[in-house]
Amino acid sequence: MLHTSAESAAERVYAEVKEQILTNSIAGGELISEGEIAARCSVSRTPVREAFLRLEAEGWMRLYPKKGALIVPIGQREKRDVVDARRLLEGHAVRSVTSRPGAVPELVAQLRENLEAHRHADPSDVVEFSRLDAEFHQLIAAAGDNPILADFYVTLGERHRRMTIASVHRDAAVATRILDDHLELLDAIEAVDADRFEELLAGHLAGVHDLPGASA
């Protein structure tokens, strides 16, 4: 029973700290300590240490003995790698959808529903705003009729959320751009124009995630 309780405490700390990293509540570059998190989560240091080791293994933090844990900032290389992967996966999905004209209306309806919810979301609620942003793009990936690629795209979801939240925090105008760009992406799919979609997606991702010089 004690072992199970220790595991559940470590799992809870892991989930709470990770969510704070993803939502920028703990910012990249910030140094946090086991004692600080133990106090915040009302647990001993042991489950915190276990959670930190897991977060380090996943690349979210670096541990420094007797100093604490440094939250790994979102680097330009990470942004470019995530954006490149998303362009490939979403572009492939849209080409698959547009090769099956009967699939286009269904995806368009799903995206319009998402866009309507997104328009009514409070941009200051960056957690919900970023969730709807991720959902829009995941709907596109899932429509590509390739479950392996769709599942791989979902694994990008956490980095996608963190990057979007950081971008909205950096510049409030990004929220408006996301909505405007999503409407254009939807229009390109409805027009069965995969080339236009890929062109718009490249500009959308480079602009939202502040990647100067990114190719279109």
Score class of each variant (00 low, 15 high):
K18C: 01
A15K: 01
D151V: 02
A191H: 11
D195P: 01
A216T: 01
E30R: 12
L22R: 04
V17Q: 10
E128P: 03
S130Y: 10
A39M: 11
L179P: 08
V104A: 08
L70H: 14
G28P: 01
P212A: 15
Y64C: 00
S5K: 15
G203V: 05
D122S: 11
E158K: 15
A188H: 08
G28E: 08
A206D: 05
T46M: 02
Q138G: 10
A9M: 09
R12K: 06
D180H: 10
A194V: 06
E58D: 12
R159S: 15
A117W: 11
Q76C: 09
I148L: 14
W60A: 07
L70F: 08
Y14N: 03
A117R: 15
R162D: 07
E11V: 01
L139Q: 13
R49I: 03
R177H: 13
P47Y: 09
A69K: 09
H160L: 11
P147W: 07
R80T: 07
E190D: 10
R119V: 09
R159D: 15
L88M: 10
S215C: 05
R161F: 06
G213N: 01
D81N: 13
R80S: 04
A85F: 05
R119Q: 01
E135I: 13
V208C: 00
Q20C: 02
R196V: 02
L139N: 12
M1C: 09
E50H: 11
A57I: 04
I74M: 02
I21K: 06
A166Q: 15
A69Q: 07
A191Y: 07
A9S: 13
L185Y: 05
H182M: 10
C41L: 05
A166D: 13
E128F: 03
E7Q: 12
A85T: 15
D145C: 00
V174W: 07
T98C: 14
G213Y: 02
P47W: 04
L185I: 02
A206F: 04
V192D: 13
R12V: 00
R12F: 08
A121W: 04
A202R: 11
A103C: 01
A109H: 06
Y14L: 05
V104T: 10
G207Y: 00
V208E: 05
Y153P: 04
V13G: 00
V104P: 08
E135S: 10
P123K: 06
D151W: 05
A141H: 08
R196S: 13
Q20T: 03
L89W: 14
M1D: 02
S96N: 11
I37Y: 00
H120S: 13
D210V: 13
E128R: 12
R196A: 14
H169M: 04
M61H: 09
A150I: 07
A214H: 15
M1P: 00
E128M: 11
A93P: 05
I148T: 15
R162L: 12
Y64R: 12
D187C: 06
V97P: 09
S44R: 02
R87C: 06
A143N: 06
F197P: 00
D151R: 12
L132I: 06
G157C: 11
S44A: 14
V94Y: 03
F152N: 07
F197S: 00
E7P: 07
L107D: 01
